[in-house]
Write a protein that binds this DNA or RNA. Sequence first.
DNA 1: TGCGAGTGGAACATCGATGTTCCATAAGGG
DNA 2: CCCTTATGGAACATCGATGTTCCACTCGCA
Lengths: 198, 198
Amino acid sequence: MPMRDDSAAVAETAAAETGTRARTRRAILDAAVALLSTDQTASLGDVAAAAGVGRTTVHRYFPERSDLLAAIGADILDKVAAATERARLDDGPASTALERLCQEFFELGDRLTLMFDVPQFMNWDGWEEETAADAALLRLVDRGRAEGSLDPEMSAEWVQNVLWSLLYSAWEHARSHGAPKHAALTLCLRTLRKAVAP
Amino acid sequence: MPMRDDSAAVAETAAAETGTRARTRRAILDAAVALLSTDQTASLGDVAAAAGVGRTTVHRYFPERSDLLAAIGADILDKVAAATERARLDDGPASTALERLCQEFFELGDRLTLMFDVPQFMNWDGWEEETAADAALLRLVDRGRAEGSLDPEMSAEWVQNVLWSLLYSAWEHARSHGAPKHAALTLCLRTLRKAVAP
DNA sequence: TGCGAGTGGAACATCGATGTTCCATAAGGG
DNA sequence: CCCTTATGGAACATCGATGTTCCACTCGCA
């Protein structure tokens, strides 16, 4: 007899759920990210197995597949927001701040490639609405163009696209060419720096 | 109605199909590319409808879904090879040749995004084996690094990754931001040029 | 330690995609 | 013009993923 997670609904965003529930939820979420980033067609049964829980339990937390994907999406948005804050986009030259952001985003790891690889995410509703993180990045680029530390020919949207693409490339480079992650990040940063320089 | 396609198709299977068969086959292939590039989960029924043929006919040409995907993959490889030849990678400065290649690849259009978006293709066997086009690109980059027209810090594989990523970004930029294709290409070329410059 | 929340697994119903067969019909080339 | 070839559509079988229900079990917390 499920308590109809009113508590969970409330706690969903910030508050801490019951220790057990929160832990299970995270386990499923993390396993799903790890698994889906290597095999986008993985079934819920696979996710359950990877998370070390029963398929029934997965359905208990995420009634439908779309619920799971939405939760992953929300989780990613959270982490993107956190990374953006850590990058302190308003401090120092815009070009330097952009590199800090790139480094922070790089740490998102699997979640990064997931956004590109899983069809569901490319067309997701969640990206539509301009997030605070998006706005901050666009502001940063505009500032950089005004300052003269970023290429004035490139729109903020284009810089954003390039940033994400290079991050994807870096992870792909590490994954398929077996390059160490730090080397991939270095290449990524170097390429980005030159690409957006005036 | 490019002559090139017919000769390529002939060369492909070494068996000249009748005009009707070849035309139907191309219709299915092209419709599949166009459809799958916008909806990776499209069913064979959808593909058939988009191609203006019956579902039965699709199965007649491609018994299994995987056969269709393999055919698309082979078709893409053909077009990549053709584009690479047209770019004359051995002529002139390496950086210029790379830009020519970028322009040629840009013309691949939907097929470009398909390779990234459709899971099946990212892990496909077909990419594994080093194609002549791959080899030519790698040679080009090495030449450029030796000449001093390309960044010596960047491996040929990385440049290749960046090239494809920027192309994907350009198409995505055109698609979602409604930018005209020529503008997207210009941005792409500018970004690539700066990124790989020494 | 005992109660209840949380869990696992089996069994079942459903659904859409896939693949196959068959036949009537349209199309196209000789 | 006729006959081969190609096609469309209906009907059917199959399969895997999904979602649901039920019950026994266990683990954590009071």
